[in-house]
Simulated scan of single mutants.
Amino acid sequence: MAPPAPPAAAPDADHRYISTDQRRVHISAHQRRTDATAVGNLLLYLPNFLASLFVVTLVSAFFGGLGLILVLAWLVSGVLVFHRPTESAVARRLLGLRYPTPQERERLEPVWREVTARAGVEGRTYELWIEDSDDLNAVAAAGHIVGVTRFSMNALPSGELAAVLAHELGHHVGGHAWSSLLGYWYALPGRIAWRVMRAFGRIVFKVSRVFSCFGVGFVLLVFGAFAFATISTLYGLPLLVLALPYALAAVSRRAELRADQHAAALGFAPMLATVLDKLHQADQQQALAARAHNGGVPLQEPSALSKLLSSHPDHHTRLHHLQPYLQPSR
């Protein structure tokens, strides 16, 4: 059963505000789905997963008979993404979030009820969290976390706050939040091993310099042979890791556009456009402040390569994709 269409706003209504009168929620049959963005994100993490599996298997070999148990335990550990106590630890320790106070709940819950009512989603499935920050921001994480900054909660009118929450709900409904955390978790052993090897390589390189160029050449030869053996054994798969950050960033940008479309389809397109304008103005003010701090000299523009690593689309791209929802109905 599809969620009901959002109620039409009066022609002269101020879109910054919405009615938050409690009403019946028509729950849709499918609370979540895994869209193409979530699937693509998981597939892109596959090389990192295989590298992590190799690292975990290598480490577990030192534990004899317990090694297989350790590998299996790591493989099933991904279910913790949906474990509520683990999610709470992620929210507190990694994201710096906290539970809302009773006064903050009075502010958030009516707006959240309106968002979930339009989406046909059971609002109690998710937990609202607060970030003590003066930035305009929000986050969707793990399986049930929806976080919003204190500034967003206090400074945004109800309509704009609803647009922000609807955007984050879009990440959950589309599977973006859990797939990102799951991919990050299974890539972690490989990343840790890479950092350890890189630190060890720096130490060895510095020590080898003491023993002249011969020592440096020997170290480069050993590491080069190891790299060649790894790449040839795994059929060049490690080379894909070099391109992964760019591919993951592209998928992340697509996920942001999907979440924008989710909020717009619920009737929050004008409010979301206003929030995007505020974010754009805040970025411009930061750029002006940085320029003033730099003695009035304009800062260097980001390179085309660095833009490819951005996790969010630029302001104009997001507004362009909202245009179909901002056109007046005929």
Rank of each mutant, 00 (worst) to 15 (best):
A8W: 04
D12R: 13
D12L: 14
R16G: 06
R24W: 11
V25P: 00
S28L: 10
A29I: 07
Q31S: 10
R32P: 06
T34W: 14
A38G: 09
L42E: 09
Y45K: 00
P47D: 01
P47Y: 02
P47M: 00
P47I: 02
N48L: 12
F49V: 03
T57V: 05
F63E: 03
G65F: 01
L70R: 03
V71G: 05
L72A: 15
H83L: 14
R84P: 14
T101A: 09
R107P: 04
L108C: 03
E109L: 15
W112E: 05
W112G: 04
E114H: 05
A117I: 01
R118A: 00
R118K: 01
A119S: 07
W129L: 08
W129M: 10
S133M: 06
S133G: 06
D135W: 02
N137F: 00
A142Q: 13
G143P: 06
V148C: 03
M153N: 05
P157T: 05
L161K: 10
E168G: 07
G170L: 05
G174L: 00
A177T: 07
A177I: 08
W178D: 00
L181M: 13
L181F: 13
P189N: 11
G190Y: 02
A193M: 15
W194H: 14
M197G: 15
A199M: 11
A199D: 10
G201N: 10
R209P: 00
F211G: 07
F211H: 12
F214K: 12
G224A: 11
A225R: 08
A227P: 07
A229R: 10
L239F: 03
L240A: 13
V241P: 02
P245L: 04
A249V: 04
V251E: 10
R253G: 03
R258E: 02
H262I: 01
L272A: 09
H280D: 14
Q286V: 12
L288Q: 09
L288H: 01
A290I: 06
G295I: 04
G296D: 08
P298W: 02
A304G: 12
K307V: 09
L319C: 07
L322H: 10
L322Y: 11
Q323F: 06
R330P: 15
R330Y: 08
